[in-house]
Design a protein around this nucleic acid. Sequence first.
RNA 1: GGAGGGAUAGCGAAGCGGCCAAACGCGGCAGACUGUAAAUCUGUUGACUAACGUCUUCGAAGGUUCGAAUCCUUCUCCCUCCA
Length: 400
Amino acid sequence: MFRPVDEQLKMLCAGAVQIETVDELRKKLEASRAASRPLRVKLGMDPTAPDIHLGHTVVLRKMREFQDLGHKAVLIIGDYTAMIGDPSGKTKTRPMLPPEAIKRNAETYFQQAGKALDTAPEKLEIRYNSEWLGKMNLADMLKLSSRVTAAQIFQRRDFKERLKNDVDIALSEFIYPLMQGWDSVVIRADVELGGTDQLFNNLVGRELQRDEKQEPQVVMVMPILEGLDGAQKMSKSLGNYIGVSEPPNEMFGKAMSISDDLMWRWYEMLPGKAEADIAALKAGHPMEAKKALAAALVERFHGANAAQAAREHFDNQFSKKKLDEVAEPLAVAAGKIGLIELVGKTGAFKSRGDIRRIIQEGGVQLDGEKQTDPKAVIEPRAGQILRAGKRVIRRIELAG
RNA sequence: GGAGGGAUAGCGAAGCGGCCAAACGCGGCAGACUGUAAAUCUGUUGACUAACGUCUUCGAAGGUUCGAAUCCUUCUCCCUCCA
């Protein structure tokens, strides 16, 4: 039932930043194969951020590989821990979330994670950690917290930084890694996956398992994907992300806007291309390579047809400038209308002053002609193409 | 408990009675250049106005003043040192 251990190991180690330890992973794989027992691979999901983006998919893909090799994914929805907020990689304390919001987020999360994981029941187990954490009492908690020393906690880079910069750390945040580690004990994890920012938390899981006389889990951390800006990690709060449920054209466009340098780094982490393929792409035109990347991403979440369509849309909009192909309809009443009002109907700008500004700066075109007079009153005709800024392109339709 | 320091636009950070809708940097938006790249350069970045200008903003509430982000009082939150 299971493939040879060396083969599995090679595949699983690919792309990981750090594995604690490879030897243990090998032993576990050997034992698993001998006993025909799938490994339990844990991944914690934080339901505070319901939009799954490409950054999450790096880890999810690894999880999928485990599944494809016959192992079992155990997805932990951190509904209980979310009430505290994971300090990992954070520079400030997170607000606690109300239970309803957590529930809603968890549902969305699962729905989106399903795009990346095999959701067959024998391949995927979903657990909410309130199931066991919610039952703990103060005595249990104290017992648990006696297992980790303050020194260990303070060693963490996130906390060090915050202490150095006089940023608050809520006491509850010290407990977070313990709770997450306890999850591993309860579900008897063989492997825990995570991003590099999860290393500390995941290692605590090992400690706790050892204390409980379990075989410690193997910790495998994956690289953190950089966001669209190429500077900070991809995250929802920074707004530099591509969400897995975004429409194809959005995905394609966002992917095209990244720098060439970033593109190659994405190539290494995202589409699972062989090095030879990447080398070949590097020899060609960077724009082609970027379009190929963008198309690959769209294809993964929306299918090949959508990828092809998104690519054509992009070419029409920017390369061939066939604006009428990509314009969205904009319904306006027949008759004269101020230019500002007309642009305002697109709903893409926050204030009239804002619109006036882009008009004066030459950002508004009507059928390809720049309109630079904010006072202008025009009489739009059906079929005219209105362009405001780079992205807002509308075809005028007369109503009434 | 004692002594000090701070809270300013999306963020960081100046300003300390009128010239402040508030310097500067980042971010955002637009333009030029391009491969919708990136980098760079230019402009712009509270709302309404064609404009003059008007209105709302500097932790909260009051007050002093012709006039307050700036001074006073109270309150809230944060930090540092001491105990």
